[in-house]
Amino acid sequence: MTARLFLRDNGLGLAFGTAFVLALIGQAFAGHADFNNQLVADDLQPISLGDYMASSDFAVDVMENWQSEYLQFFLYVFLTVWLVQRGSPESKSLDRIGVESDEDQQVGPHARPDSPRWAAAGGIRLKVYASSLGQVMGAIFVLSWLAQSVTGVSAYNEEQLRQLQAPTSWREYIVSADFWDRTLQNWQSEFIAIASMAILSIYLRQRGSPESKPVGAPHHSTGVEG
């Protein structure tokens, strides 16, 4: 495969991967400057960019965004099995609610010659593979939320000590206002984004996008991609 074909065939992943790295670098520089401004305001010595990126303050900001994003995908993957939205390309057809038949899903005896091996295997391997996307998204969400709580309590206690106040335990922190403020401000943005995409795509179009219906498709067409 030539480099040109590789870039064409993997353009979406490469574009978002590059955007992720650039955004993370930008966040590191902006967060470092803001953190040092706070230190100076507290009559403390600024720290280097490397020290900031290794700090709990940087880690908790990253983790709280990751966990909310993976919660969005985890819920979307599972809820769209059973919930539909009439007219939305983000929803499957109204007559396909549920896990669907083995024939529809091309598993077991209905697997194609080029189907994944576990799709044709049956038994526990098929059960695991059949929900592997949601399981992995859910696992990443739980792990990143745990990481947020651990780095969050460390960052919170550093701030407490700078203000000459007593630190708190991890158990106390995960029921604190600081933890849930960080968490819920991200969750609400993810939920409204999903709802907006599902509903606006009923009436609005983006020509050539698989996230949109064909421009001429009627509003009531459901599960149709452009």
Rank of each mutant, 00 (worst) to 15 (best):
P89N: 12
R8K: 12
M63N: 08
A193K: 15
P46N: 09
A155N: 10
P113F: 07
F73E: 04
L146V: 07
H220R: 15
N186D: 10
S68V: 11
L12K: 03
S212Q: 03
L143R: 05
Y76A: 03
D102G: 15
S101A: 11
D42S: 08
L133D: 06
E158M: 01
S212H: 05
D181S: 03
V150N: 13
E100N: 14
V84G: 08
E172A: 00
V150D: 13
I140T: 04
G87N: 09
R8V: 08
V128M: 12
F73Q: 02
H220M: 14
I199Q: 13
F29I: 09
S189P: 00
F179Q: 01
E159W: 02
E172H: 01
T183P: 04
R4T: 05
V107Y: 06
L7S: 04
V142N: 03
P167E: 01
N10A: 08
L94G: 14
S201N: 05
F141M: 00
E100D: 09
E100C: 12
F74I: 06
Q163Y: 12
V150P: 11
P89Q: 13
R96M: 07
L161C: 02
W170Q: 03
S88N: 06
F58T: 11
H220L: 14
F74G: 01
I202M: 15
V84I: 13
L164V: 04
V215H: 08
E90S: 13
L79T: 15
Y156K: 00
V142D: 04
D102H: 15
N186K: 15
G50Y: 07
K127I: 14
I199P: 11
L71E: 08
R125Q: 14
Q165K: 07
S221W: 08
F191D: 12
Y129W: 04
Q72M: 03
L94C: 13
Y129E: 04
W145K: 05
A19D: 02
V224Y: 04
L14R: 00
I199K: 13
F16Y: 02
D104W: 06
A155M: 07
W180K: 15
Y173T: 00
S189R: 10
S131E: 09
L71F: 14
K213T: 07
G11V: 14
A120Y: 10
Q185R: 06
L39P: 10
V136K: 12
I194N: 08
A217F: 08
S56N: 03
Q67W: 10
W145G: 02
Q163D: 12
H32F: 03
L5A: 11
I202R: 15
